[in-house]
């Protein structure tokens, strides 16, 4: 389901059959929801549908619950707005999965005018009843999360996965030497709780035409260097922040701190901030090279 360590058993993928989301824009033909919806504008209307089925035998075994105790909510939250998490959850639809029917349908209409940049669809299956005498690891409380998935559909073209923009860097940086750099990462380490995507923007220098062409052509080495620079800059500042322990262990999901911590964990699995800080202090070359290597893996 995710990297969260749940304190109770959850549903396996074989217990849940969830169809992919289908989408219809302005009553057009249904089509699979991709990561980008063309032709959306605020006057559009969007319909979405999917079906969810639970196999009660597998579910009972997965959760160590009596089959007669099984009752679930399947719910969909639809939200919108820039960022990794929706700025605003616009609504929630919930259905009950129980012995009468182990299959539910969702058919949701979302008015275009309520949307902004991204449509975020989060589906969850949760326990819908309290279990009075549960097995030691069984879920037991209403709302315990047992399965989830999440789909994000971009609606507006200017919101790429990582915010990149071709710009006049000299206008931004003035006559400083840095203004002639091929790229410039615009961000501030002052606020680690900011949403990662809202907190930074990578500007490609409009005067470096050949460089921009190589990025547009997705030249792997160029992209690797760019991403390594982004990762290195952010991680260096996080690991030297006086509050690094708080930030590393308790970052808000989707925040700048959470993203940096995730990169650091990938570079040094199982190590704590003290260890990573010592690498940065004593072996800065290794520190940076780790991100160059990680960027090659598409991380």
């Amino acid at each position: 389901m995710s990297r969260i360590a749940f304190p109770f058993l959850t549903l396996s993928e074989s217990a849940v059959t969830a169809t992919s989301w289908s989408i219809s824009l302005n009553e057009s033909e249904w089509a699979p929801a991709g990561d980008y919806l063309q032709d959306w504008d605020p006057a559009s209307s969007i319909r979405l549908r999917r079906q969810i089925f639970i196999d009660p035998s597998i579910a009972a075994a997965d959760l160590q619950l009596d089959k007669n105790d099984l009752k679930f909510f399947a719910s969909v939250r639809f939200g919108t707005g820039q960022g990794r998490l929706p700025r605003l959850v616009l609504g929630r639809e919930s259905r009950v999965l129980e012995a009468e029917s182990w299959m539910v349908d969702f058919d949701i209409e979302v008015p275009g005018e309520a949307l902004s940049t991204v449509l975020d669809l989060s589906t969850r299956i949760t326990l819908a009843t309290s279990i009075s005498v549960p097995a030691p690891l069984a879920p037991s409380r209403i709302g315990d999360q047992l399965w989830s998935d999440r789909v994000r559909v971009r609606l507006e073209g200017e919101e790429p996965r990582f915010p990149i923009e071709v710009g006049d860097i000299q206008a931004l940086l003035g006559d400083a030497v840095s203004a002639s750099a091929p790229w410039y990462l615009h961000w501030s380490p002052r606020d680690w709780s900011r949403d990662f995507h809202g907190a930074m923007r990578l500007y490609l220098n409009s005067t470096h035409i050949e460089f921009i062409e190589r990025i547009e052509a997705q030249d792997p080495m160029m992209i690797q260097m760019l991403m390594a620079d982004v990762m290195g800059q952010v991680c260096e500042r996080l690991i030297t922040d006086p509050d690094v322990n708080d930030l590393f262990f308790s970052a808000e999901p989707g925040s700048l701190a959470a993203q940096a911590s995730s990169w650091l964990r990938k570079a040094w699995p199982g190590k704590d901030p003290d260890f990573i800080r010592s690498v940065f202090d004593n072996r800065p070359g290794i520190f940076r090279a780790s991100f160059v290597a990680l960027a090659d893996l598409g991380d």
Partner: peptide, 8 residues
């Protein structure tokens, strides 16, 4: 993270 509080 583990319990949908808005579901309660």
């Amino acid at each position: 993270e583990v319990r949908s509080l808005d579901e309660l």
